[in-house]
Simulated assay, not measured.
Amino acid sequence: MTAKVSVILPVFNGERYIRKAVESVLNQTLTDFELIIVNDGSTDNTLNIINEFEDSRIVLVSQENLGPGAARNRALEKATGEYVMYLDADDWFSPDAFEIAYAEAKEKDTDFTFYQMINYDDVSGKTYPNDWFELKNFDESFEDRVFSPDEIKGSIFDLSVGVCQKIYKISFLREIDAKFPEGIFFEDMPFFYYVLLKSERISIIKRHLYFRRKHDESITHVVDGKFLDTVPAGQELIRIFIENGWYHTYIYDLLAYKINGPRFALRDIEEKYKVDMYLLIKNDYDAIKQSQYYQDYLDNLGPVKKKFFLDIIASENYEDFTRLNQQNSGPA
């Protein structure tokens, strides 16, 4: 029998937080769901904690550590629900999240629906908003109606790409063969843009349905080695836009977005990763220079991003790049 909502929860060594995440699902006001937990090669006490829950709605999948993209793809193949919602192991849902999100998606027959998230600081115990998670890019004219990607053409790169902030119609995801990139972090980003631009019916819910925990181990809390993956994630994004005929429509904002992710990562990443980060970007830009798209970057990048792009290409090593980039460097 088909559940109304399939919840996909990948977890790797999540013993500190997994209990609260699972309980937030099991205590929902909408009870017709399945919870697919993918134990992604955990080596701590995660699996024992999961096994403490005795609930027929839990489907446990165990695999070697392949990362969140592979875990989510495998879970989606198993999902039997009408709609799917995603949960990270250190976060949790509000008690009425499924009821509200499902009702909205079902009533408006959306391909996917955004809802608000709110940050929770693990140290202070306080919640705080930010503009992305508040859906501030959608003014009142978007509320309580269905819209298409064409209506937000100029602002798609200002949207939250996080997969956990939406409820998706499973038949739609399968129809378009939506898959997460595997083996890299920041896998939400290319997935989101593919799904967004393939969709026709979108809506928003201005309610906080999801709590996003910020702590020392959060992927985006420290700019560490995971941020090396901003390069392959950006390459995947460009591939998706080119292959689906969206590249020229969004070229100016797309190329700025492509450059800025790794540019800021190189600026902020821990010192021990800077050379590796530089080399990834250098290899990427050298390949672009040899491609048919090189002139597009020269024609469409703003002065600061263009200087960064050309300094990387002109440099022979990270020290050389640092010297070049500091010359006549404008504001970020």
Rank of each mutant, 00 (worst) to 15 (best):
K166W: 12
I204M: 11
K214H: 12
F192D: 10
V195Q: 07
E187N: 09
K169S: 04
F172R: 10
K198F: 10
I170T: 03
R212P: 07
K206V: 03
R201P: 07
Y210G: 01
F186T: 01
K169M: 05
Q165K: 08
F147E: 15
G162I: 01
G154P: 11
K166A: 03
K153L: 02
R207D: 14
E151N: 12
K179Y: 09
H208M: 11
Y194G: 10
D188N: 00
E200W: 09
E151S: 00
F185N: 03
L196I: 02
V163R: 01
E182W: 15
S155Y: 05
Y168Q: 05
D150M: 15
E182R: 11
Q165S: 03
I184M: 00
S199F: 03
K166M: 10
R212Q: 11
R207Q: 08
F157I: 11
I202H: 04
K166Q: 09
E175V: 12
P149I: 13
F142E: 08
F185G: 05
S155H: 12
R145H: 07
K206T: 02
K153S: 09
P149N: 08
P190G: 10
Y193K: 09
F172C: 09
L159Q: 04
K179R: 14
D158W: 10
E182C: 07
C164G: 08
I204H: 09
F185T: 09
M189P: 02
F192K: 06
Y193C: 01
S199A: 09
C164M: 02
V146Q: 10
E175S: 10
L209A: 03
G154Y: 15
F172Q: 05
S171M: 04
K206W: 00
F180Y: 01
R174P: 05
I205Q: 09
F157L: 13
E175K: 13
I152E: 02
D177F: 09
Y168H: 05
S155E: 13
G162P: 02
S199Q: 06
Y168T: 06
D158F: 12
A178E: 08
K214W: 09
R212M: 13
S203Q: 13
E175T: 13
S203T: 13
K153W: 10
I156N: 14
K179T: 04
S155W: 15
E187A: 06
D188H: 00
K198T: 03
E200D: 15
V195P: 01
Q165D: 09
I156R: 12
I205S: 05
L159V: 05
K179F: 07
D188P: 00
K206M: 12
L159M: 08
E187G: 03
E200F: 03
I170M: 02
L159D: 03
I202W: 05
E151R: 08
G183Y: 11
D177C: 08
D144N: 15
I176N: 01
F211Y: 15
R145F: 05
F186M: 00
D177R: 13
S155I: 11
V161P: 04
I205P: 00
M189I: 14
G183E: 04
F147H: 14
F172W: 13
I176V: 07
V195H: 04
S148A: 15
Q165E: 11
